[in-house]
């Protein structure tokens, strides 16, 4: 075996563990799949239908009811690929002192967690495909075309990596903080609100949208949806590059934090 093959086999078996872990508890797994869909149908569908129908409104900022429901269905789909990792295991590894084992393993901490993340993404892709078929046949969305679909999947998967980098970075804070869930929740709330996952950004005050363009937030939900719908106004390449840029920046921070944290950790002799 070449060293590349050996390395690949390590990644693959770690991914397998990631997949196994994800499915270990039946009910848990089912709830994680059904949960987001449930939210979509229960809250968003009902809410928008009632806003439009109770008032007899036909259009809000260019969104008809059908368009609004379509938008929310895309939010559901994008999030299945984009917002998957939660960094909990990572922080736990640090807090419970399991980091030390990775110092001895021939597969380091970053690789281990990245590989398990990829494992989860494989499962998520399956769930995404199923949900996509269902939503499509329910007539909730109208894909713009095969190219747009593939571009959108690529975009969403990249966002998944971006999301993972952020979670990794936040998880690193466990070296310094007793608990990190607050950081994760703050990030989740902010991202849901500013990425257009709750309501389309067109409905936000325009000054806020202009500010947001300088942050990664719109790229997390709003723009991927626009790509899927074939309505992305900028150049697709530029969008990808911006995503790569943010991934790179956050990963650098995360790896820096990992190095510093490890040094702190080993220096403390724990």
């Amino acid at each position: 075996m070449t060293s590349l093959q050996r390395e690949a086999s390590k990644w693959l078996s770690t991914m397998q563990i990631g997949i196994t872990n994800q499915m270990a508890y039946k009910i848990n797994f089912l709830l994680m799949i059904i949960g987001p869909a449930l939210v979509f149908f229960l809250i968003k569908y009902n809410l928008w239908v009632s806003i439009y129908s109770l008032e007899g409104i036909t259009e809000i900022k260019g969104y008809t009811l059908e368009a609004m429901i379509g938008y929310q269905a895309w939010v559901l789909l994008v999030e299945l690929l984009a917002k998957t990792s939660n960094g909990r295991n990572l922080a736990e590894d640090i807090r419970l002192g399991r980091v030390t084992t990775y110092l001895i393993y021939p597969f380091d901490f970053w690789k281990f967690h990245s590989a398990s993340f990829l494992g989860t993404q494989v499962v998520q892709c399956v769930i995404f495909s199923l949900t996509f078929v269902i939503v499509l046949f329910a007539g909730l969305i109208e894909p713009a075309g095969v190219f747009q679909f593939l571009a959108g999947v690529g975009f969403a998967l990249l966002v998944g990596i971006l999301w993972y980098s952020v979670q990794f970075f936040v998880g690193m804070m466990a070296f310094w903080l007793e608990e990190t869930w607050m950081l994760r929740v703050i990030f989740q709330i902010t991202a849901a609100f500013l990425s257009g996952a709750i309501i389309p950004l067109e409905l936000y005050p325009s000054w806020l949208v202009q500010v947001l363009d300088f942050t990664p937030f719109p790229y997390m939900t709003f723009y991927p949806i626009k790509v899927f719908q074939g309505e992305y106004s900028g150049s697709l390449l530029e969008g990808y590059l911006i995503l790569f840029f943010w991934i790179f920046v956050i990963m650098m921070f995360a790896r820096f934090a990992l190095r510093r944290g490890m040094r702190l950790y080993t220096a403390a002799g724990m």
Partner: peptide, 14 residues
């Protein structure tokens, strides 16, 4: 019954 909690807590919060 489920022991693992993330799913239940998720449902609870939803």
């Amino acid at each position: 019954w489920t022991i693992e909690s993330i799913g239940i807590n998720f449902l609870r919060m939803q």
